[in-house]
């Protein structure tokens, strides 16, 4: 995955970059699979590897494939990146070991509550669905609204103008 990411950075051709991004998403989804997150793996495979690649490719149709050859390594971004790397590695030392059952994430009572009660509360064996739709229903409602808003935004950015050209400025649409 890391190799894939680095190659994307170096790639001049955006078309190859888009395909590599798709491979990266597929690798991420297999990783989620091994981490027991089946729902997330499912979503990442469908959304990351499928839809977003298609959208990037559709954009490339309009804007062209090639980037300008980049100048030499830029100094300021590199400095910022190194600085952030320092901060993250400093924070890394306080992270609990990977996959231990007594990590703070797992000892918080809410996770325990979900695991023990979601089946009897909702008759839904898949805890992820139960939490998504029932316990965190407000959250998901907001999420759906965000997706809806993004759809409207794209419609306003790309769709409205096309209709205006065709129908000569219908006042209702614009």
């Amino acid at each position: 995955m890391l190799i894939c990411a680095v190659v994307i950075t170096l790639m001049r051709n955006l078309f190859a970059g888009a395909i590599l991004l798709s491979i990266y998403s597929l690798l991420a989804s297999t990783f989620f699979m091994t981490m027991d997150a089946v729902d997330v793996a499912f979503t990442e495979a469908a959304v990351g590897a499928g839809i977003s690649t298609i959208l990037v490719l559709a954009t490339l149709l309009h804007v062209g494939h090639d980037t300008k050859p980049a100048k030499t390594l830029r100094v300021l971004p590199l400095l910022v990146t190194v600085f952030v790397a320092g901060l993250l590695i400093y924070g890394l030392h306080d992270m609990p070991g990977f996959g231990q059952a007594n990590n703070p994430v797992h000892t918080h009572p809410i996770a325990e509550y979900y695991i023990e009660n979601s089946e009897s509360d909702t008759k839904s064996p898949n805890m992820v669905t139960a939490i998504l739709a029932s316990y965190r229903g407000y959250d998901t409602l907001g999420e759906v609204t965000v997706v809806f808003t993004a759809g409207i935004g794209v419609l306003l950015l790309l769709g409205g103008r096309r209709k205006n050209n065709k129908r000569k400025a219908d006042p209702k649409i614009s």
């Binding site: 499912f42 979503t43 469908a46 959304v47 008759k123 064996p125 898949n126 992820v128 669905t129 998504l132």
Partner: peptide, 18 residues
């Protein structure tokens, strides 16, 4: 089948569109 196995509205919507 999202209640019983992996799946749900988000994934189904995306696959349907695919």
């Amino acid at each position: 089948h999202g209640d019983y196995g992996p799946g749900g509205g988000f994934q189904a919507g995306v696959i349907y569109t695919a």
